[in-house]
Nucleic acid binder design. Structure first.
Lengths: 248, 248
DNA sequence: CAGTGGTCTAGACCACGTG
DNA sequence: ACGTGGTCTAGACCACTGC
């Protein structure tokens, strides 16, 4: 069920890495390879312990770390599962706009355009791609209470998501689809936030006068294996809403 | 050395809370009470185990959680210490402005004014204070490369920091002083980020034309016991810099 | 060298979900 | 009733620090 050859980790640590870290990486590898699909239940802790030749406590420590990283989910009495992202969960984690009273904003989305091409200099930089790599570009308007408030440009490495732009459109939430269709699980995102004034085109799209201040969020999205899988530029006309951030 | 009465936790969990959580809370209480000061070394794991009447593994699990929350620091071969914030660490954790190339911004600071008064409605709201509670208000300009770029207003509950405004000024970094002088350890901050245009006064202070877009960060700072200890409003003229955020 | 945290094991019992 | 994860224990050995 595992790597083929029934491996036993020696008690002497390989390369001085703790056993539970090695087990953690083996479990991640199983998930990456697709052997354990999103939503699937893992073997029990004692079974994993036997398979990897370690104790149940060591398995526990490895799965603890993976549960903390949202890669596994534990359900007492049932088992340990590979975390399957849903559209709602992804929105909850990665879409952090709020009403003045703290209520979450649940946006709608309208695609403007989806194209393919060679990565520009800045796209190569933000996505850590080689010269000449192909990318998929997608732009859309996010609306709330029927009013547009975010103009968003998304750039994806085509190598990671072959055939994605085929039908010319993308779903409202991408991250759950990345996992279910391409086996790419989003871990976190790093953002650069600043302000700018709306250009003529941006103002027209967002239905406001040119020169209005916009919140600009430049996001790099990172998978559980550390690869950058998305570059997303969001221009936001907040108009009473705010962007919620936790620090420390 | 501990709570006075040599306590023994029963094996039957009190109120169904796991032993290690109870131990965690007892350790936090020791720190809050000042019995274990910032920078102090804790008794060894085995000594703690004997004191609390639990096993070393349970102590480990409690201190693991506290180390993850930055409340304790473990140093192999030396001991476990109460995390003592330094000005540099605090800046690293809570001041997240960067140069375009990703280099950290290390600001200077100039006090504008420090006053005391009764909390306004909005101050009561943001600091979770009762009507009529007293607050300390402090405003300052943050500069970088000798140019002002943040106009900051800080409001503190006077009850938490008695005598703080006595000499009429505050240090550049507050959070380390909160801990060393008042035993208040900062845990995290929640922020509401949006944009606004510079008023006449703000523009004058930040040395730019009125109407320029500013990044507005409304921060509530929270201590390890969950109390809100600070409300801080930062108006930022980024001008090429960006605010770094991690999501998920 | 002694003492500390870091890792790992083996075994026990409990709480929960399912059949 | 059974199997799962959740907690807790006791003991072992290792790695690091400081004397």
């Amino acid at each position: 069920m595992l790597c083929g050859d029934g491996m036993k980790l020696p008690k002497a640590q390989q390369g001085n890495r703790p056993l539970y870290v090695q087990v953690r990486d083996l479990i991640v590898a199983e998930i990456q390879s697709g052997a354990w699909a999103p939503g699937a239940v893992l073997p029990s802790e004692f079974e994993l312990a036997r398979t990897y030749g370690v104790s149940q406590g060591t398995i526990r420590k490895a799965t603890d770390a993976l549960a903390a990283d949202q890669i596994l989910v534990r359900r007492q009495g049932r088992g340990t599962f590979v975390h399957a992202h849903t559209a709602a969960e992804v929105l909850f984690r990665f879409f952090q706009f709020r009403e003045p009273d703290g209520q979450r904003v649940i946006p709608a989305s309208r695609t403007l355009r989806t194209t393919r091409g060679s990565a520009t200099r800045i796209e190569q930089d933000r996505l850590a791609l080689a010269k000449g790599a192909r990318v998929i570009r997608h732009s859309r308007l996010r609306t709330w209470r029927s009013r547009p408030f975010i103009f968003e440009t998304i750039v994806l490495p085509e190598a990671l998501f072959p055939g994605l732009a085929a039908n010319g459109d993308l779903p409202n939430t991408l991250y759950d689809m990345f996992q279910t269709h391409y086996g790419v699980t989003v871990a976190r995102a790093v953002e650069r936030v600043d302000t700018q004034t709306a250009s003529e085109r941006q103002a027209r799209l967002l239905d406001l006068p040119a020169g209005q201040p916009l919140l600009r969020i430049d996001r790099q999205t990172i998978a559980i294996d550390g690869r950058i899988i998305e570059w997303r530029l969001s221009l936001c006309h907040l108009d009473g809403l705010y962007y919620a951030v936790e620090v420390g």
